[in-house]
Amino acid sequence: MKKSRFSIPPRYLLFIITFICIAFFAIGFFAPGITDKVSDAISSVVMPMQKGMSNLSTSVSDGRDNITALKDAQAENEKLLAENERLKAELEKYEADQYELAHLREILALRDEYPDYDIVAAKVIQKDSGSWFNSFVINLGSDDGMKVNMNVLSGDGLAGIITEVGKNYSRVSAIIDDFSNISAMSQNSGDYCMVSGDLEAYENGRIRLGYIDKNDNIHNGDKIVTSNISDKYLPGLLIGYAEDIRVESNNLTKSGYIVPVADFDKLKTVLVIKTLKVTGGKS
């Protein structure tokens, strides 16, 4: 009697959900605008939560650091313990400041390197929460003028590209992601090649480099930058250094690996280039 209010048979419930999801995929395929709005509406509710979580996890890791600091202090004289801890806390704060200073200086240097572009700094508020993707979320969204396909740099070079923009967040797909393909070239010779992310290669800290003509002049250690014919990436952004270039078994092309300059395990602050690549149609 009590159950009568909610008793849809599970079979039908499952059927309804399947139908909704597939309808959603279909709409997303034929008219992406509508589904984007729906997912954006849901995300904008949850994203502030993400920010809070990010703060929470920072405090958790801070707590972890404090415990190790305490253990060191205990080995010392007990009388000095209180004094010691105070100094340590102070030192930690300075170290954090120092780290931030060094980081910001690095970013500033990078900003000078690409002076023509309109660059803003953004904070990474969430790393990928699953095991399958290499993307992260930054704290700027459409309110801050973010747009899809804006290039994202980390301290040293290209980190990724914006694939999804919400009101107060944007998702950045990293160049090591399985889906990432970048048209690139060697800075020395100007020969074109293709950089594609690969989870398997990234296990060894590398990403794939392919589609090089056999006669092209790309060697190990060459600087690989984004090419001028790419339709999404601005030309001349440093990706990494070529490694292990070999002629493939078809004897027509060469392929190898790139060691990316960006450090994807320690992303905290990134730079977004607000200048979009201009390609033919719209500007």
Partner: peptide, 8 residues
């Protein structure tokens, strides 16, 4: 939401 990509 947290993974992004195709919704659903």
């Amino acid at each position: 939401i947290s993974l992004g990509g195709t919704f659903g």
